[in-house]
Design a protein around this nucleic acid. Structure first.
Length: 480
RNA sequence: GGCGAGAUAGCAAAAUGGUUAUGCAGCGGAUUGCAAAUCCGCCUAUCCCAGUUCGAUUCUGGGUCUCGCCUCCA
């Protein structure tokens, strides 16, 4: 049985869906005003893994991941760029999709944009007002009256007293309580029409938290199974979502709250405000996207994950070992549209499943993959290789032809090298064809027992980034 | 200041009241023309101090250090 660490309970709990065999899951996605960084990559990959595991476990899953396409930062950035909100968000939504696709992240079933759900948000704010939980402030904003909601703080483990005692809660004019948060922001004269919607409280735009409550209940119902996001959303965002949803609908909002840990740089949280972030596309220039995905899944989703080139290098070598095992065997039958039935009764698969069922313990599941690779290599087992590929596929890994992983398909047909001259011919361009010719030259040299020449070719290719490997079956190459 | 999470070998990272995690690196051997890859074997570990226990890295208490949330943040 699947166990999930529930932030609400601060403990692992048996997962019991509200409706048998179905899971309804909502994850807080991106605010689209800039490129995604590695922290975003982690949320994308982690919950993609959760989504895949739930499906592999036989659940009928509805996965919603929202897009915040209206907020202060977006307005500010659009103004700075001198472009419309829509043009800005459209651009970064496309960029986000590119990044997510590269990382092997499946598209969610729904990807709602906040601006498309303003009526549902207004409806919810009206309910809150009716239930005595919202009030109109002097400045025209509509705020949520936190102290009127019994149980505020149950997710984050904070009490209103603790929060008020905190040094960092500023008194904000217009709020009855410093902790009250905005549901509806009144329009300002300086703002473009594009960010103004009509409402019973005058023109304005939604506060940040309300979109998730409104879109969640619209697409998944008032009460659903799983809600996820980065650990920094636990408070206040998710706490406020609970207050809004339960305050409006008077029923439980979400059964299981999941939060992934941060990506760090030098033991510090990677974040935009600290400026210590690496965008996904930046990293993908240097590292294969699957290596990045593997790097993320190699750590447990709740623990901190330190980013560094050394760690990515390490992940690359480790993933190479898995692909090497796959390369040695011809795997048949090929998966049909990525779907192959997993034989869960097999011992390795059982260990894999037990690991995944234990709060998505991907490091343990990946350890099983390495044991399987050893099995493949030791016994030349095509069966083990097939299983390795299937189980890897459950994590969204190992699905490319091994040769593609080793030789890569991007960007190096045109790289010019210091010429490697063999038998009077100078090879100066880095193409698979030239590499193949050099391999043939080397084979000829070897046959002639001219090992010095054979070693020279191998060495010069290695310096150019191509590693040759001899085996009984012939010589193969891979990117070093 | 309030609340919370964590400290595992050279690095990364799981698990566990007693028995090999796993990957990388390192060492020895097999294999190879030499390498690489692979296989076999080996080496490094549980922050500190008490307590519970036949036995603790694992449980309890205290300490030290690190990180996070309390402000936008995945």
């Amino acid at each position: 049985m699947l166990k999930i660490y529930n932030t609400l309970a601060r403990d692992k709990q048996d997962f019991k869906p509200i409706t048998p065999n179905t899971v309804r899951m909502y994850v807080c996605g991106m605010t689209v005003y800039d490129y995604c960084h590695l922290g975003h990559a982690r949320v994308l990959v982690v919950f993609d893994m959760v989504y895949r595991w739930l499906k592999a476990s036989g659940y009928d899953v509805t996965y919603v991941r929202n897009i915040t396409d209206i907020d202060d930062k977006i307005i500010k950035r659009a103004a700075e760029n001198g472009e419309s909100i829509h043009a800005l968000t459209k651009r970064f939504i496309a960029a986000m999709h590119e990044d997510a696709d590269a990382l092997g992240v499946l598209r969610p079933d729904h990807e709602p944009c906040a601006t498309q759900y303003v009526p549902q948000m207004l409806e919810m704010i009206s309910r809150l007002e009716k239930n005595g939980l919202a009030y109109r402030a002097a400045d025209g904003d509509v705020n949520y009256a936190v102290r009127k909601f019994d149980g505020y703080g149950k997710l984050s483990g904070k009490s209103l007293e603790d929060l008020r005692a905190g040094e960092r809660v500023d008194v904000v004019e217009g709020k009855n309580d410093p902790l009250d948060f905005v549901l509806w922001k009144h329009a300002k004269d300086s703002e473009a029409d594009e960010v103004k919607w009509d409402s019973p409280w005058g023109k304005g735009r939604p506060g940040w938290h309300i979109e998730c409550s409104a879109m969640g209940s619209e697409l998944l119902g008032k009460h659903f199974d799983i809600h996820g996001g980065g650990a920094d959303l636990q408070f206040p965002h998710h706490e406020n979502e609970i207050a809004q949803s339960e305050g409006a609908h008077k029923c439980k909002f979400v059964n299981y709250w999941m939060h992934n840990g941060f990506v760090r740089v030098d033991e510090e949280k990677m974040s935009k405000s600290l400026g210590n972030f690496f965008t996904i596309r930046e990293v993908l220039k240097k590292y294969d996207a699957e290596v990045v995905r593997f790097f993320i899944l190699r750590a447990h989703y709740r623990s901190a994950l330190n980013y560094s080139d050394a760690h990515l290098d390490d992940a690359k070598v480790a993933l190479t070992r898995l692909y090497t095992a796959l390369k040695s065997q011809s795997i048949s039958p090929e998966p049909v549209e990525g779907k192959r039935i997993v034989g869960w009764s097999e011992p390795y698969a059982q260990r894999f499943k037990a690991a995944m069922d234990d709060d998505f313990n991907t490091p343990e599941a990946i350890a099983v993959l390495f044991d399987l690779a050893n099995e493949v290599n030791r016994n030349q087992s095509a069966e083990a290789a097939a299983q390795l590929k299937v189980l890897g596929g459950v994590l969204g890994l190992l699905q490319r032809p091994a040769i593609e992983f080793f030789q890569g398909s991007v960007g190096w047909g045109n790289v010019t090298l210091p010429a490697i001259t063999v038998s009077g011919t100078a090879y100066q361009t880095f193409t698979p064809e030239n590499i193949e010719k050099l391999i043939q030259e080397r084979i000829a040299a070897k046959k002639a027992k001219n090992f010095a020449e054979a070693d020279r070719i191998r060495k010069e290719l290695l310096e150019a980034g191509v590693m040759l490997e001899d085996s009984a079956a012939g010589t193969t190459w891979r990117r070093a």
